[in-house]
Structures are given as structure tokens and as C-alpha cells.
Amino acid sequence: MSKEVNEEGQTQTEEKQMKDYAEPPAVALMEMGELKRWSFYRAMIAEFVATLLFLYVTIATVIGHKKQTGGTCDGVGLLGIAWSFGGMIFILVYCTAGISGGHINPAVTLGLLVARKVSLVRAVGYMVSQCMGGVCGVALVKALMKNYYNGHGGGANAVAAGYSKGNALGAEIIGTFVLVYTVFSATDPKRSARDSHVPVLAPLPIGFAVFMVHLATIPITGTGINPARSFAAALVYNSTKVWDDQWIFWVGPFLGAIVAATYHQYILRAGAAKALGSFYANHTK
């Protein structure tokens, strides 16, 4: 009987004995039983409220900045806007991670679906909740800051002057790749077992990734990397230009999320090599 050997020359048995962590099994793609559990609906509510709060604070920050730049001061500046988005993600992921996983972004949810860490049922439920929560959050900003909201673009994403749609799409793909790659790395069970402080600090690198991506892409697209954020702002502001560019803020983040999930799971974590090794082991016995 042949033994399966990993890249470092260890057998499966030796590798298992050396592990101090448990690799969670892949989630069933169609887990219809989730529809009968209160935990599923509680998680959807958490995603709804978290995305509502995220959009309310961040869009209000964008509108407030644009209002002040037309007056006597420069507002919070692009750095402040980036901190607003990154800081809110840090806070909300910390608050909701134990309930829903703290996705707050359909692209993150898609990446976790590709990696089989959530079911299709849960992924669809989360995406709907995130989009609805985002719309309510932006609508709340419009209700409280109506005149300034309408006069300063509603915080909606669009391709900036001087950039092509291709430039914008590339920026969204790369930006979302950075975010989703960070999510996978920060929540990796192997890293959590090796460094006991990681589960507590996981929201920090995720929020910091959002902050850094905003610094790079605000001048290009206003930074989407979150289809719920872009859709909510577009729906409430309702501008032809914004709707014309809307596809970029879905296609870009989704492609970036898929590439990041595939890279982490099947290259860095050697998912493809393990699957191939298992195939050969089963056919050489």
C-alpha cells in the first residue's frame, strides 16, 4: 500500500500528528437545512445591521468632507475617508464575527463560497441582507443630509475623469483581491493555532486592508471593492452616470474575490496538490 506524501516529504499520518489545528470540513453547497435554523436568520440580521451602519457612517463622512471643501476648511480629506471605511470595517467585523462571520461585503461572501466555507443558501441570504442594509444606511444619510447629499454626488462610485473603464475595472479587481486575500489569511485556522492572538486581532488587518485600498483607488473609482456599498449608493442617488458604471463595481470585486480565494486555498494552502495527491494515492493502492 502506498502512502500519500506531502511537499515536505511527510506522510499523511506524520503530518496529522504534527498538526495542532483542525481544518474545518468543506460546507455543503446546498445546505437547505439552514433555512430551518434561527442562527441563519440571526446572522442575516447581523449582516443587515452591520452594512447599514457601515454605509451610514462612511457615506456621511464622504458627504461631510465634500461639504466642507466648498467652505472654509478642507474637511477630513481623502485620508480621513479611507480611515472611515477601514475603521468601520474593523469595528463591525469585530462586533459580528461571532454571529455571521462579519462579511459585510458580497465579494467577501463570494470568496468564502468559492472556498466552500459557506453554503450557497447562506451566501445568497447574506448578499441580499447586505444590499438591503446598505440601501437603508445610504437612505438614512440622505434623510439627514438631504441638501448636501444631492449636491455632492451621494457618495456614489463612478469612474473618475481621466480614467478608462478598463482602468477602473483593474483597480477594483486588485483592490478586492487585497481585501479577500487578507480575510483568508487573517482567519486561516493554521495561523490561528500557531499564533493565539490572531483570532482577537483578525478584524485589524482586514480593516487596515480596506484603509490601504481606499488610499490607492479613491482617485480612480471612489473605491468600491464592495458591491453592496456601490449598489446602495447608486440606487439612492440614482444618476445615469453612476448606473452606466455600476457593472464595474460588481464584476471587478467578484473577479478579485474569486482569484483571491483560489490563490489562497489551492496554491498557498496546497488544496490542488492535496487533491491530486489523494487521487493518485487512491488509484495506486
Rank of each mutant, 00 (worst) to 15 (best):
L255Q: 08
P203I: 00
G277P: 03
K274Q: 14
N238C: 11
T221E: 00
V198W: 10
F184S: 10
D195V: 12
T240R: 03
G162N: 14
G224T: 01
T187V: 06
V210D: 04
F231E: 03
S196V: 15
K165P: 04
A193H: 08
V159R: 15
G224V: 02
L215W: 07
F254D: 07
A160E: 00
L276V: 12
I267H: 02
A233P: 01
A275R: 01
T240Y: 02
P205Y: 04
F184V: 04
F254M: 15
L268C: 05
G222D: 01
A273Y: 12
G151T: 01
H264E: 03
R194E: 07
F279L: 15
V213D: 07
A261C: 08
G252I: 04
G175D: 06
A272T: 10
V180L: 06
Y266A: 13
A234C: 08
G207N: 10
G166N: 01
A270E: 05
W247D: 09
G162S: 09
N167V: 14
I258V: 13
V180P: 00
I220W: 08
A158T: 07
K241N: 07
H197R: 11
L276E: 13
A270H: 11
S278G: 12
K274W: 02
E172P: 06
P253V: 14
T221G: 02
A168C: 00
I173A: 06
A156M: 08
Q246N: 14
A168L: 01
A171W: 00
A168R: 00
L255Y: 02
D195H: 07
W247L: 11
F177V: 07
P189Y: 13
F249D: 06
A234I: 14
P203N: 06
I206G: 05
V200D: 08
A156F: 02
A171L: 05
A257D: 00
A234V: 14
G155T: 07
S192A: 14
W247N: 09
A216R: 00
A270P: 00
V259K: 12
W250K: 06
A186N: 04
V213P: 14
V178Q: 01
N157W: 13
W243T: 00
T182F: 04
S185Q: 09
I258P: 01
L276W: 15
A156C: 05
Y163V: 02
Y163G: 09
P199D: 12
V251D: 11
G224C: 05
G271L: 05
P205W: 09
R269M: 13
L255A: 09
A161I: 12
L268G: 02
L235C: 09
Y181T: 11
S164V: 06
G175E: 02
A275I: 10
S278M: 01
P219Q: 10
P199A: 15
F231T: 01
G277Q: 00
